[in-house]
Design a protein around this nucleic acid. Structure first.
Lengths: 198, 198
DNA sequence: CCGATAGCTGTATAAATATACAGCTATCGG
DNA sequence: CCGATAGCTGTATATTTATACAGCTATCGG
C-alpha cells in the first residue's frame, strides 16, 4: 500500500511537513482548511484518510494533531519493558531508528534492545538491537520475543509433543519450561549491532 | 529571563524533548501527568508555566499540544510577505534558522529574505537574510523594514523636518517619499548571506 | 452513458485539550 | 517563626479537535 500521490495530495503532505518544521507540531484539520481555503473540515479529513491509506502518514486515532509522517517514523526502538505494560507502549520506547522496514523479511515491526547474555551463542549480544516481526505464532527453532507473565524475554522456541520450551543459547543460562501463560510477541527477523558494542 | 531549572523542571523538559522525538509532537498536559504519575492536570500546567516563564518553552495559547521548545525554535525566516498579512504570519514563514538571537544587538527577532536590488550599495543583496529587530521606532539613517499599505520594503530611514523618506541604496531605484500610512516593522541589526549567493 | 475516484461543501457531535480557581505540604533563606 | 517557592491534589469548564454522515461536481477509463 504505497501508491502514488496526486498533485493535490502531495501539496497536503508538503503542508504537513512544513507545519512540522515551522510550528514544531503536525497541523489540525482546521489549520489545513485554513491554509488551503477549504470551507469544510471534512475536506482535510478526506485528504488525510487518503494519505494514510496510501501509507504516507499514520494517524493517531482520537489524538489532537495526531498526524505522523511515515518517512520520519522509522522503527520504534524498545528498551527495557516496564512490567505488565504493552511492549510497544510509548514509555518503553527509547526513540526511533531511521530504517526502511523492507530490509528484513518478513517485515520488521520494531527493534528490541537486548539485555543480558542468555543468547550470546546465537550471536545475540547484550545491547544488540533485535529486529522483530510482530506475530503470535512461532515455528520450531525460531528465535522469539515471548512474554511470560510480566517478563519479556528473547529465546529460541522449541515445541515438543507435550510441552513448550524456551531455549537459552548459552550454557550458563537455564532453559525455561513453559507452564504458565505464554504469549509470543514476535519473531526475530534481523539484528543490528551498534558500533559501541563491537 | 533565562533562569536555571530545578531537577524536576529539567525532567519535564526532557520529557517534552522525548515526546517530540518519539511521538513527533509535543505532549498534552494529560500525557505529562500520565508519564510522571500526577493526579491533576494542573501539576503539568504549573510546570509548563514555569518552563515558559524561565524561557525554556513557548506556549501557543489555546492550541492543542501547543508547546514549543525554544532551543529548536531559532529565528523565523520570513519569505515573500503576502499582501496585507502580518509579517510574522505562519504563511509567510519559510522555516526557522538555528541561530542564537544574542548574536546581534539589539536582539534579532526574525530573519527576512531580501528580494530585489534596491539596497545593493549598502551591501544588502538579493537573497540575503536580514536580521531584524522588531520595533516601531527608527532613528535617522537606520535601515528599516517598513510597511506601506500592503507592501513591505527594506530601505534606509530618513526623517527631515517636514517629511519622511525611505532611501534606496542603489541609484537605479527611486527613493520613496512617504505620504500614506507608514508602519515601521523593525530595524536591521544584522545580515546573513547564504553560500549560494556568494 | 456508467461507475469509480478525486475533491470538495455543510452539519453535527463526542472526546480531547487547555486552563482557570482553590487549596495543601515540604523546603529553605532570613 | 515567616513568607516565598516548588510541587502537587481536586474540580470545573470553555474550546479545540477529530471525525462521522450526507451529498455535490468534475474528471476519466471503459
Amino acid at each position: 500500500m504505497d501508491l502514488k500521490l496526486t498533485p493535490r495530495q502531495q501539496e497536503i503532505l508538503d503542508f504537513i511537513r512544513n507545519s512540522l518544521e515551522v510550528l514544531g507540531a503536525p497541523p489540525t484539520r482546521a489549520e489545513i482548511c485554513n491554509a488551503f481555503g477549504f470551507a469544510s473540515p471534512n475536506a482535510a479529513e478526506d485528504h488525510l484518510k487518503v494519505l494514510a491509506k496510501k501509507g504516507a502518514i499514520v494517524m493517531e486515532p482520537g489524538s489532537a494533531r495526531g498526524i505522523r509522517l511515515v518517512e520520519q517514523l522509522g522503527l520504534p526502538l524498545i528498551g527495557s519493558v516496564a512490567a505488565g505494560s504493552p511492549l510497544l507502549a510509548v514509555e518503553n520506547q527509547l526513540g526511533r531508528v531511521q530504517l526502511g522496514n523492507q530490509l528484513f523479511s518478513p517485515r520488521a515491526d520494531y527493534l528490541l534492545k537486548v539485555r543480558g547474555n542468555s543468547m550470546t551463542h546465537a550471536g545475540i549480544l547484550d545491547g544488540d538491537l533485535l529486529a522483530v516481526h510482530k506475530t503470535n505464532e512461532a515455528r520450531n527453532g525460531q528465535i522469539v520475543v515471548a512474554r511470560l507473565g510480566d517478563d519479556v524475554t528473547v529465546k529460541r522456541f522449541k515445541k515438543t509433543r507435550n510441552r513448550i520450551e524456551l531455549i537459552a543459547e548459552n550454557p550458563d543460562y537455564e532453559n525455561i519450561v513453559v507452564d504458565g501463560p505464554l504469549e509470543i510477541e514476535g519473531i526475530a527477523v534481523g539484528l543490528i549491532r551498534n558500533g559501541d558494542a563491537l
